[in-house]
């Protein structure tokens, strides 16, 4: 590295923004060149001193309060004028806390876990492509992939043959998301791999939501007590189509058939048993094939959704 280059990369070096090789070159030059080293040290000290003297302006309390009010926050504004008022306020806030505390807490928790899972799912997807470890069991046959998960997971993931719809199965993989082992099914559309992560969910079904994270399309939801996250670099419409084909084609049927739900997951089995569902055969293994679905009775394909 020349003396000129040192001058140019000085700030990037101080800010630790140089890549490892350039940083090493930089340091090597400083070792060899006294003039640059002296100048560098002076610049570094000056920079550090300026930085520590640069004031950080704190937002005034009044502004923060104004903003909270503006956003319609339930923060108390102003002091109550009498003791009675105060007592009333305390009582009221206690009641409100008791009544809504749990609700708020739950609704506040859910998004953060969604964010967390979203991030993990995207990372898993990227890692599966990067490390050339897309599948543990490469097979386009659902009857090979499904039994492979036996003994590896505490649930039997639903697997569907979607090759007629243009999403051939590539295989399956064990993955780890949200602090548990999950099934990752890999499908493909043309050259685009789709990772479908599945695990049992105790929550009620929720409609699919679409996200775009780091350029990947992600669709997640809960269907028949199975949490699913589909992710791909495929375009949004085709990924929606995929999720639709996988879960919602036979929605009507699965809703009608108690048998079907009890067979899907451990959880639904459990729930059905608690309800004393007459259709539930408690001895039935949760690993029964998930799809007693008759292809011919499939609902017509939905119109492509507007993104």
């Amino acid at each position: 590295m020349s003396c000129d280059r040192i001058q140019d990369s000085l700030d990037a070096y101080l800010d630790r923004e140089l890549d490892v090789l350039s940083a090493r070159d930089f340091e090597r030059h400083l070792n060899d060149c006294d003039a640059c080293r002296v100048a560098f040290e002076r610049y570094r000290d000056l920079q550090a001193s300026v930085k520590t003297q640069l004031p950080y302006f704190q937002a005034p309390e009044s502004l923060v309060r104004k903003i909270r009010t503006q956003l319609g926050s339930s923060e108390r504004r102003g002091e109550p004028s009498t003791i009675a008022w105060r007592a009333w306020a305390v009582a009221a806030s206690l009641v409100i806390c008791l009544a809504f505390g749990t609700l708020l807490f739950r609704s506040a928790l859910r998004p953060s876990s969604t964010e967390l899972i979203a991030d993990q799912v995207v990372s898993s997807h990227i890692r599966s492509l990067m490390a050339n470890h897309l599948v543990d069991v490469p097979s386009s046959d659902q009857h090979t992939v499904k039994p492979w998960f036996n003994g590896k997971l505490d649930f039997a993931p639903p697997i569907r043959d979607l090759s007629p719809e243009g999403f051939p199965l590539i295989g399956g993989r064990l993955d780890y998301v949200d602090a548990r082992a999950v099934a990752a099914l890999v499908y493909k559309r043309r050259q685009h791999p789709i990772n479908l992560f599945l695990w049992p969910a105790s929550d009620v079904d929720s409609k699919p939501s679409a996200l775009v994270i780091r350029g990947y399309h992600v669709i997640h939801g809960i269907q028949s007590h199975t949490a699913y996250w589909a992710i791909s670099d495929l375009n949004a419409d085709e990924l929606k189509q995929f999720v639709q084909d996988f879960f919602y084609q036979s929605r009507e049927r699965s809703d009608r058939s108690a048998d079907y739900t009890t067979r899907t997951t451990v959880h639904s089995n459990f729930i059905a048993a608690k309800r004393g569902n007459a259709h539930n055969h408690g001895s039935q293994s949760p690993q029964m094939p998930v799809r007693p679905l008759i292809r011919e009775s499939r609902l017509p394909l939905p119109a492509p959704c507007a993104a």
Partner: peptide, 16 residues
């Protein structure tokens, strides 16, 4: 079946 492609959290307890 499909919601708008907005993050789930925006709809549920958006302000919180």
């Amino acid at each position: 079946v499909w919601n708008k492609p907005t993050p789930e959290h925006v709809r549920k307890g958006e302000r919180e």
